[in-house]
Design a protein around this nucleic acid. Structure first.
Length: 481
RNA sequence: CGGGGCGUAGCGCAGCCCGGUUAGCGCGCCUGCUUCGGGAGCAGGAGGUCCCCGGUUCAAAUCCGGGCGCCCCGACCA
């Protein structure tokens, strides 16, 4: 099982590197179905940890899980004009089932707003029924022309939150609350620093009033939209007639939100932290955080190192560390090291006869750094080491992002940057969609977000980076996935 | 959907131009022995509809025609 083939270096071909890492770390594989992937246990394990963390956060903010059908009557999609325009071209539709043509075709959900609003109409009568705070973990299908493992597959797994409120302000607050939850998760679990802000109309979700997003910068200096939170206003409520009686007896449509993150986050994790040896997984999302490698020559040494290794595993497991012992015979320690490094395990503990004699293990961090750890205090030192790696990964990613962020960009700089090394370019924006379109055609860069206040430049730009008309807002451009 | 590349053992490839008799190599896999603190060595062994269909030929992995699939780039894409 040891690597028989090297990984393409990032600098040589980032796409090839990305695919190589996924194969090497056994995260996913291509399936017999075009555009669809198989998520293998090591990849799914990361997703499960992501789900667990996010689900806890959603519950802590008052949301409940529910489940709506995979199939949506085709007519539902057509009820919201922008929504159908945005999604119809990429839907898969079932026209035949049970051996005969269906009276009405069923769309395989590309997102569930329509079917959820069709139900909310039945459930919401009064302001007392609000807010409705739902989340769904599901698979969705979007018939993309070009797919990439984790980043854009025909079928993907995600969560979609859908909430309905009595007032616009409350819905807006919910939208921002979730954006903050996403950011918290991305930074503190994925060790991925993100920019938050609002999307321009061109990048807005089909059917939303406003779309907010978290944008990360990958190691090839392309941006990745890691999560979105939409303020839907009353658009879907009107389309599906979700009305309620207000406190003063009048009727109103509910104000709603929707928000989601997907298995794309696994791709983000890979591209944010991986290196030329393979995957680098942040400890908090690592299915296996510590791998213990016993080293021996004789049977006596084998027995002694195994005993220490198993005892250490038991102690660490009891302290909440995800750990295993590599008991395989006939494989040299070095080969095991390479294998576990390729799989992204954050910390390795080597236990040989010398370590047994000294009551210690040699620790080796995936991101570099070796030090002996006394077995006596392993249960406190190891979690500390893992925390240290988590912290360092975030700091490293943040430094990398900041290094590739340019403020007060001029038109010439924007062109040069986008044709060259890439990164986030901050600059003034006239707010005109036509200008945005020209920039996209000329530089392939899109406005990733109109950044939230904390990300804005100290000095607000005065002129549009492109057309030199007065700037109405600062914007961040980048080429994106 | 346009451009490029590629389909030969589980993986990575050679062979094809110039058709020829048992289709090779590396890694991996199985068995045994020796190894084991940074990718082990030796010996033996298993494993193939050469992507598919059709054509040319005494003979096709190889030549010709047509399909299909995959990857990359682009267009498209919360």
């Amino acid at each position: 099982m040891s690597a028989d083939k090297g990984i393409t270096p990032r600098a040589t071909d980032f796409s090839a590197w990305y695919n190589d890492v996924i194969m090497r770390a056994e995260l996913a594989d291509y399936s017999p179905v075009r555009g669809c992937m198989v998520i293998r246990p090591r990849g799914y394990g990361i997703w499960e940890l992501m789900q667990r963390a996010l689900d806890d956060m959603f519950k802590a903010t008052g949301h409940q899980n529910a489940y709506f059908p995979l199939f949506i009557p085709e007519s539902f999609l057509r009820r919201e004009a922008e929504h159908v325009e945005g999604f119809a071209p990429e839907t898969a539709v079932v026209t035949r089932a049970g051996g005969k043509e269906l009276e009405e075709p069923l769309v395989v959900r590309p997102t569930s707003e329509t079917i959820i609003y069709s139900m909310l109409g039945k459930w919401v009568q009064s302001y007392r029924d609000l807010p409705v705070l739902l989340n769904q973990w599901a698979n969705v299908v979007r018939w993309e022309l070009r797919t990439r493992l984790f980043l854009r597959t025909t079928e993907f797994l995600w969560q979609e939150g859908h909430t309905a409120h009595a007032t616009s302000a409350e819905a807006e607050e919910e939208t921002l609350k979730i954006l903050a939850v996403y950011r918290d998760f991305m930074e503190n679990w994925m060790a991925l620093p993100v920019l938050t802000g609002v999307k321009t109309d061109a990048e807005r979700f089909a059917g939303a009033v406003r779309t907010y997003a978290c944008e990360g910068l990958m190691q090839d200096n392309k941006a990745l939209q890691a999560g979105t939170s939409h303020f839907l206003g009353q658009n879907f409520a009107r389309a599906f007639d979700v009305q309620f009686q207000t406190m003063d007896g009048t009727m109103d449509y509910v104000w709603s939100t929707s928000w989601g993150v997907s298995t794309r986050l696994v791709g983000a994790l890979i591209m944010a932290h991986g290196d030329d040896v393979g995957l680098v997984c942040p400890p908090r999302l690592a299915p296996l955080q510590v791998i213990i490698v016993p080293i021996w020559r004789s049977d006596e040494e084998r027995a002694a190192t195994f005993e220490v290794a198993e005892r250490l595993k038991a102690e660490l497991t009891a302290s909440g560390v995800r750990v295993d012992v590599d008991r395989r015979d006939g494989m040299k320690p070095g080969a095991k090291y390479y294998e576990w490094e390729g799989r992204g395990v954050p910390l390795r503990l080597e236990i040989g006869p010398r370590d047994v004699a000294q009551g210690q293990a040699m620790s080796a961090r995936r991101i570099g750094g070796k030090q002996p750890v006394s077995l006596a205090d392993a249960t406190t030192v190891i979690p500390d080491l893992l925390d240290g790696i988590q912290t360092e990964l975030l700091a490293r990613a943040r430094a990398r992002r900041d290094e590739h962020s340019v403020r007060g960009t001029t038109k010439e700089q924007l062109i040069e940057l986008m044709e060259g090394q890439g990164g986030f370019a901050y600059g003034g924006f006239c707010g005109d969609g036509a200008c945005e379109q020209v920039i996209k055609e000329r530089t392939k860069a899109t406005v990733r977000v109109l950044p939230d206040p904390e990300f804005r430049s100290a000095e607000a730009p005065v002129r549009c980076v492109w057309c030199d008309r007065p700037s109405v807002t600062e914007a961040v451009w980048a080429r994106a996935y």
